[in-house]
């Protein structure tokens, strides 16, 4: 029987919604238990949130001052120790999970399955390669712990509220390195919905033309209650900060509505939105590849069309 340890991602005392998505993937393995591991300096509030997620058997907390910031070199030895007795260790395939999970896998001496899209059996998974242009079925060694990252866009967040899993404190005896130190996190402050979990996303590309012009995207997004994303070209050109990039090397998202404005539809961008419910493209070039995959396409100048959309919304 399987027993799964899910590594909680959190920031500023709050549980990241990607954790509940990793719990969904864990549930698909049909395990005997799903435990969530919270490593933090003050884990109580985070653990309380995790305990409410459906399907969670227990929440395990490790309280250490060194866990104040998510440094892979510090967290991995603790996770590797906590993994004893578990058949699987899952982390979300966010920059947090991508950073720490391979370090855990190497400490355990096992391969890692990256970006799990579906669970075929306890040791058999599907994952994308070549920017999602091929999907492979991989089998991990059944005699070893499976370390995997979960492609969050492929999994709904497990429901929350009905559960109240027990919370237990763990003491982990692991020597932690001091060779890696956290200095600071520069965060774009925003009242807008979070890009990774928003149900609606409006993204702008190089076609928006400048940082100042991007206001038109923000304004429209605010009007419909959407998060704002961008193409790599828009980030590289300095219109918006890096955390807004959607695509193969940015965020992979699955909103119900995705609106690509002034984005051509390069394969690396499309990789990030394959699982979106409805894709809308607005582009002045009727031949732009984005129209090949858009559910609704509108050809024209974005600077003319966005005000018209706002007007049509009333």
């Amino acid at each position: 029987m399987s027993k799964i340890l899910v590594i909680a991602e959190h920031l500023g005392g709050k549980l990241n919604p990607s954790t509940a998505r990793a719990v969904s993937a864990a549930a698909a393995v049909k395990p005997e238990a799903i435990d969530v591991l919270v490593l933090a300096d003050a884990p109580d509030a985070i653990a309380a949130e995790a305990a409410k997620i459906d399907g969670v058997s227990r929440v395990l907390t490790v309280t250490r001052a060194e866990n104040a910031h998510p440094l892979a070199a510090v967290l991995a030895p603790q996770i590797a120790k906590a993994a004893t007795g578990y058949s699987h260790v899952f982390a979300p395939s966010t920059t947090f999970g991508k950073d720490v999970a391979p370090r855990v896998a190497a400490l355990l001496g096992v391969a890692q399955v990256s970006d799990v899209m579906s669970v075929e059996a306890a040791h058999t998974f599907k994952r994308p390669i070549y920017a999602g242009n091929a999907i492979i079925t991989v089998e991990a060694d059944a005699n070893h712990t499976v370390v995997a990252t979960i492609r969050t866009a492929s999994w709904p967040a497990a429901a929350s509220g009905a559960n109240s899993a027990p919370i237990e404190a763990l003491t982990i005896d692991a020597a932690l390195p001091t060779h890696t130190r956290f200095i600071e996190l520069k965060q774009g402050s925003s009242d807008r919905p979070d890009l990774q979990s928003a149900s609606k996303v409006v993204s702008g590309g190089r076609g928006v033309g400048s940082k100042e012009n991007f206001d038109i995207i923000y304004k429209f997004a605010d009007k419909i209650g959407a998060a704002v994303g961008a193409s790599r070209a828009a980030v590289d050109a300095g219109y918006v900060p890096n955390e807004m990039q959607v695509g193969q090397t940015g965020k992979i998202i699955a909103p119900e509505l995705y609106m690509a404005i002034g984005i051509s539809g390069a394969i690396q961008h499309l990789t990030g939105i394959k699982d979106a419910g409805t894709i809308v493209a607005i582009n002045k070039d009727g031949e732009a590849p984005i129209f090949e995959i858009a559910d609704f396409g509108l050809v024209g100048d974005l600077f003319k069309l966005i005000p018209e959309l706002e007007q049509a919304l009333g």
Binding site: T94, F182, E243, K251
Partner: peptide, 13 residues
């Protein structure tokens, strides 16, 4: 480092 939340600065020996 380019992380989901923004830019994280770390120091590594």
């Amino acid at each position: 480092r380019e992380v989901d939340a923004g830019l994280e600065v770390i120091e590594a020996e």
